[in-house]
């Protein structure tokens, strides 16, 4: 436990003053441009994924401003993931309803399919709206998440509070070419801070940015 903070301090002490020039441009990408890019362009896409603080030669990289992003939205294909999930739920509920009607009230055979359609429409609608509501922003001193259809939730995670950052890819997410990022704090809502529906390179890039910002936020304090 002694080594780690020492590392961070070292890193902090080699930092240039935070008002180094040219803070805005390099890693900021327009998301819409990314969106239109499909799988073929993926390997060429992650230029900003390379700006790990470790191998940064440029002074710009150590400036917190270099790691921030504008307000970003999720990858559109996460919609299909969510819609698919809603359909599975609808299928299960519809199946249960069908079985129940067959057993209890066979004179109303339409109830099962009706349940399926209803749940599917509601679920899919919710999934699409949820996708539209999602946005996140990596700011100078905190991560801001904004999402929610029925209940709109905005979460601020100050980098000083970040314990660790995971990227996770479940089997279905892998099949869809997606990945999610989980940011842990010591608070209870740690598990809530999950950004789903990121492209794999995007989530590793975010992880790098957040890591750098988290380290920096401590370095600055350890004066």
């Amino acid at each position: 436990m002694d080594d780690e903070p020492a590392d961070e301090r070292e890193e902090a002490s080699t930092d240039p003053p935070p008002d180094a020039p040219g803070d805005e441009e390099p890693p900021q990408r327009s998301l819409d441009a990314d969106r239109s890019a499909d799988d073929e362009t993926r390997p060429t896409d992650p230029p900003s994924g390379a700006d790990t603080p470790g191998d940064s030669e440029d002074a710009i990289e150590d400036d917190p401003g270099a790691y921030t992003t504008d307000v970003r939205t999720l990858d559109p294909r996460v919609r299909w993931l969510w819609v698919g999930r809603a359909l599975v739920v609808a299928l299960v509920l519809g199946g249960i309803a069908t079985a129940a009607t067959l057993a209890l009230a066979p004179e109303w055979p339409w109830i099962g399919p009706a349940v399926f359609v209803l749940v599917a429409v509601l679920g899919a609608g919710h999934a699409l709206l949820l996708y539209r509501s999602w946005s996140y922003e990596v700011r100078e001193d905190s991560l801001l998440l904004d999402r929610g259809v029925i209940t709109r939730v905005r979460t601020v995670v100050p980098y000083v509070r970040v314990q660790h950052i995971d990227t996770s890819r479940g089997p279905i997410e892998r099949a869809a070419g997606l990945s999610s990022l989980v940011v842990y704090t010591a608070g209870s809502r740690g598990a809530d801070v999950t950004i789903p529906g990121l492209r794999p390179w995007e989530s590793t890039d975010l992880q790098t940015r957040l890591k750098a910002l988290a380290i920096e936020s401590e370095g600055e304090d350890a004066v």
């Binding site: 929610g148 029925i150 209940t151 709109r152 939730v153 905005r154 979460t155 601020v156 995670v157 100050p158 509070r161 704090t185 010591a186 608070g187 209870s188 809502r189 740690g190 809530d192 801070v193």
Partner: peptide
């Protein structure tokens, strides 16, 4: 640790929100 604001549908109707200090 974290700060969360949330608005349910009913809260939105009245321009209200809940702030959670975690």
């Amino acid at each position: 640790q974290t700060l969360v604001t949330s608005e349910t549908v009913f809260q939105r109707r009245r321009d209200l929100a809940t702030l959670v200090v975690d």
